[in-house]
Computed example of a mutant assay.
Amino acid sequence: MRKILFQPQFKSVMNTHTRDILQFLVQNSVNFNILCDMKKASFSPQLPEHITSTFNEITLFVLAGYTFESIELHEGCMSFEAGFGSENIGSFVSIEYEGIVQILLHDNDLLREIPLFTNVSHPCFYNFSEEELQEIESIQREGLEQSNLAFALNPENGRFFKK
């Protein structure tokens, strides 16, 4: 399972899929929520400590109204503008696609959130020990090295290297 879920190529597929789903929702004007890994999020301008200290490691963002209208999809991340805290402090939020853990839709009939997409390659779904996380990182590095080696050994790819 780990060799698939945490392989760089599979993570790339998941990131592309994440972006494609977000693009579909934005193009069809469908409001949604996202659960995000805050280690993959940034704010501009930075938010004050009394606000960031309230964020959990995995935090829910509701993308509706002006926040929804401000969504931009970039090569490696999505961004949007949102207001935070009782002061409604505005900040641009950027979240890497690999940091999007789930995309949820609100079901008005059931009055709850329905997961539309789950990033199964995100480590938060697995209770890994520190040793296991190091092993996963090793598998990722090994996969990347093998991919680079395969690329370099193909004589057709010689044109991409400086001589």
Rank of each mutant, 00 (worst) to 15 (best):
K40S: 15
A64I: 06
G90T: 10
T59G: 06
P45W: 06
G83C: 08
S79C: 02
H50P: 00
L63C: 13
Q46Y: 03
K39E: 13
E75C: 00
S44L: 02
E87D: 15
E87I: 01
C36G: 06
E49M: 06
S70G: 06
E57V: 04
A41M: 08
V62Y: 14
L60R: 15
T54H: 13
H74R: 07
F84V: 03
C36W: 02
S86Q: 12
E69C: 05
A41H: 06
I89Y: 12
E75N: 05
T59W: 14
G85Y: 03
S91H: 08
M78F: 09
I89T: 13
G65L: 04
S79I: 01
K39P: 00
L47Q: 11
L35H: 04
F55A: 14
M78P: 01
P45Q: 03
T54D: 14
E69M: 05
M38H: 10
L73P: 00
H50D: 12
P48R: 11
V62P: 00
S94Y: 05
E49L: 12
E49A: 06
Q46F: 01
F55L: 10
L60K: 14
K39G: 10
G65K: 02
A41K: 08
S91I: 03
S44F: 11
L47F: 04
F68A: 01
T67C: 12
I71V: 14
A82K: 07
I71Y: 03
T52D: 06
D37Y: 02
G76C: 03
S94Q: 12
E96R: 05
F43P: 00
I95N: 14
S42E: 07
I95T: 06
